[in-house]
Computed example of a mutant assay.
Amino acid sequence: MTLGRRAPWPLRARAAAQAEARRQRIAVRALAYACDERDFSRIVRVLHPDAVLVIDSGGRVPAPLDPVGGRARIVDMLVRFLDTHPEAVAVECPVNGEPGIALHTSQDIVGVLTVGVRAERISRLWLVVNPDKLRAWNA
């Protein structure tokens, strides 16, 4: 390769994907720590201002049907969820091949959280609390 030439596009694409995966792992780690410590001001800091939370309850657990937008409302929903499971611990783990968080008590996984990242902050959160979908996690 001569000076001044860019790397072939597959290498650039791979580098970009690795950088994105690293940002996502860092964001997940920060969110897991904040949830585990119940540090809600830290949760606010890791969320993008336009963040959206989608909760999959399957209609079996009380949860909003529509996506929840805005940091304050998302933190409120996470606080409510964590308050219902005060013994829950947030642990980083792969979810569908991506960095995620399992929220578990001494007996069961009570929620699985995945995120999307934009501008190094969490912009999308998907929280699965549907007992039918968590059955495989608890097997």
Results as ranks from 00 to 15, higher is better:
49 P>L: 13
104 H>I: 01
71 R>S: 09
72 A>F: 02
82 L>S: 04
65 L>V: 12
78 L>M: 15
119 A>V: 03
74 I>Q: 11
66 D>Q: 15
54 V>F: 01
108 D>P: 02
94 P>N: 07
120 E>A: 14
106 S>D: 13
109 I>K: 07
83 D>Q: 11
103 L>R: 05
93 C>W: 01
57 S>N: 10
114 T>E: 07
120 E>Q: 14
56 D>G: 02
89 V>K: 11
99 P>F: 03
56 D>K: 11
73 R>S: 13
115 V>W: 11
114 T>W: 02
121 R>N: 09
104 H>L: 12
57 S>D: 13
118 R>D: 08
76 D>N: 06
82 L>N: 01
93 C>N: 03
75 V>G: 05
77 M>H: 10
101 I>K: 07
80 R>K: 11
118 R>P: 00
75 V>S: 05
61 V>D: 08
74 I>A: 05
107 Q>H: 13
49 P>Q: 10
79 V>R: 15
107 Q>V: 08
105 T>Y: 05
98 E>P: 00
52 V>M: 13
97 G>N: 11
119 A>G: 02
117 V>N: 04
103 L>W: 05
116 G>A: 14
72 A>M: 01
57 S>L: 03
104 H>T: 07
49 P>I: 15
56 D>I: 08
85 H>R: 13
71 R>W: 00
79 V>W: 01
66 D>H: 15
81 F>H: 14
76 D>W: 06
54 V>G: 04
55 I>R: 12
97 G>Q: 07
100 G>H: 06
71 R>D: 00
74 I>E: 02
98 E>H: 13
86 P>V: 01
116 G>C: 10
65 L>K: 14
86 P>C: 07
67 P>A: 12
89 V>N: 01
57 S>R: 09
86 P>H: 07
70 G>C: 09
118 R>G: 01
64 P>V: 15
55 I>C: 05
93 C>A: 14
90 A>E: 04
95 V>R: 12
119 A>P: 00
